[in-house]
Simulated scan of single mutants.
Amino acid sequence: MDLLSVFIQGLTLGLAYLAPIGMQNLFVINSALSHRLGRAMATALVVVFWDVSLALACFFGAGALMSAVPWLKNIVLGLGGVLVICIGIGLIRSEADLSCDKDVNQPFAKIILASFVVTWLNPQAIVDGTIMLGAFRATLPPGSDPLFIAGFATASFVWFNALALISNRLGSKINVRVLTWVNRICGIVIILYGLKLLSTLVQL
């Protein structure tokens, strides 16, 4: 696997993982629909910061644990593959929901805190991110870790900023039907990545 492929793998996985509607996306969408473009983009950048910081913690934290306990690698690969496939199947079968109880019409300091809450205080995001990113780190060639996580971070920056811009400009044209199809497409991509993890486990 060449270095560009590692970066692209991190980028595509990041986009497929972030695009389905979740707490962070709802927060960015509601902010974009409620504020002017400048405020919406600033909110998106704050979400990117917390999202990338969580990804780094999950990626390098899980990697350090597997380095210290080598037999965990196969377990994480197996659990990660199954988890990723389950996430993908769930996305394909689910309907998007645009309801959100987060108040985005508030001072910017509170928006920073609220974006931290929807990112770092989301137990499912922490568990899923640790297992998924840890599993993918186990498949990477030596020394390519920074490129993979750089691709994942780039996906976060591109996705949340694009989401804020498009939501702010399109407004009411964003509907549940469109977002449901986004979920389904991302579900298929995520399932393929899950199968890749299980394939690596079989090869080992």
Rank of each mutant, 00 (worst) to 15 (best):
G14H: 04
N105I: 13
M41Y: 12
V118W: 08
V182S: 08
C100T: 14
V28R: 00
L113K: 14
D51L: 07
F152I: 05
P142A: 09
G81Q: 06
L165N: 00
F7G: 00
D51Y: 01
L170D: 09
A125L: 07
G143I: 08
N25M: 08
N161Q: 08
S31N: 06
T130G: 09
S67V: 13
I8P: 00
L98P: 00
A150S: 15
L192Y: 12
A40G: 03
L201A: 04
P141L: 01
P123K: 07
G80H: 03
V47L: 06
I190Y: 03
P141Q: 00
R93H: 08
T12M: 15
I75W: 02
I149Y: 04
L133M: 13
M1K: 10
G88N: 05
L45W: 12
L163F: 02
G10S: 11
D101K: 10
N183I: 05
V47K: 01
V6H: 06
A114R: 09
I87V: 15
K196N: 07
W120T: 02
V104W: 00
D101C: 03
L197R: 00
L195C: 11
T180V: 10
A109E: 13
S53H: 03
G63W: 01
A135H: 05
I185P: 04
D2G: 15
A42H: 10
M132L: 15
R39T: 11
R169Y: 03
R169E: 09
S5H: 09
L170N: 02
I75H: 00
A68F: 14
Y17G: 06
D51K: 06
G61N: 09
L113W: 09
V76K: 01
P20D: 09
Y17P: 01
V127Y: 07
W159Y: 10
I85S: 05
N122I: 06
L13V: 11
K110T: 04
L198I: 14
G129R: 03
L77F: 11
A68R: 07
F157A: 15
G78M: 08
L3R: 11
T200E: 13
